[in-house]
């Protein structure tokens, strides 16, 4: 537990909750990243496309600004090959759309709404992640 950061992680979480709250109160939508961005591919209405694209632009711009202030916040530090990263992206992309949500939509918004689907989905993706990391770190030696 060398890198335990309860205060910055808790404050960061509260900012995420505030952002999701803003999307709910003003736009009347759930702030699920996979749903917001994935919806850019499935929606036809200009109004839908506009707010989704604006949110994505904020996310990218926020990353750029944050990295100029604190580059260490974007350190990778895992032993992963390019094919492993590509497989990870494909699984996360397809899986979150198939399961209708990711860490934000199910894990934050869904649990807060006490949605049965989101609570089950969160338990499953957490368990699958824990099992995967166990296999990589303790059977395959930490590299993939």
């Amino acid at each position: 537990m060398d890198n335990f950061t309860p205060i910055s992680s808790g404050l960061g979480g509260m900012l995420i909750g505030l952002s999701a709250g803003l999307i709910l109160l003003y736009n009347g939508r759930i702030a699920g990243i996979s749903g917001i961005v994935g919806g850019l591919l499935t929606n036809r209405q200009a109004r839908e496309l506009l707010w989704r694209a604006a949110f994505l632009l904020g996310l990218l711009g926020g990353g750029l600004i944050a990295s100029s202030i604190a580059p260490d916040a974007f350190a990778f530090e895992l032993d992963r090959s390019t094919p492993a990263l590509i497989a990870a992206g494909l699984l996360v992309g397809f899986g979150t759309r198939l399961g209708n949500g990711c860490t934000s939509g199910h894990g934050v918004c869904g649990i807060s709404r006490l949605s049965r689907r989101s609570i089950v989905a969160t338990a499953i993706f957490m368990s699958a992640g824990i099992l995967t990391v166990y296999i990589i770190n303790h059977i395959l030696g930490g590299a993939l």
């Binding site: 992963r80 996360v92 899986g95 089950v120």
Partner: peptide
């Protein structure tokens, strides 16, 4: 199935979509 696939990918890459 979607949540399980997502969890596997999350464990491999360490990134979720956001």
């Amino acid at each position: 199935a979607g949540a399980a696939l997502f969890g596997i990918g999350w464990g491999v890459g360490g990134y979720c979509p956001g």
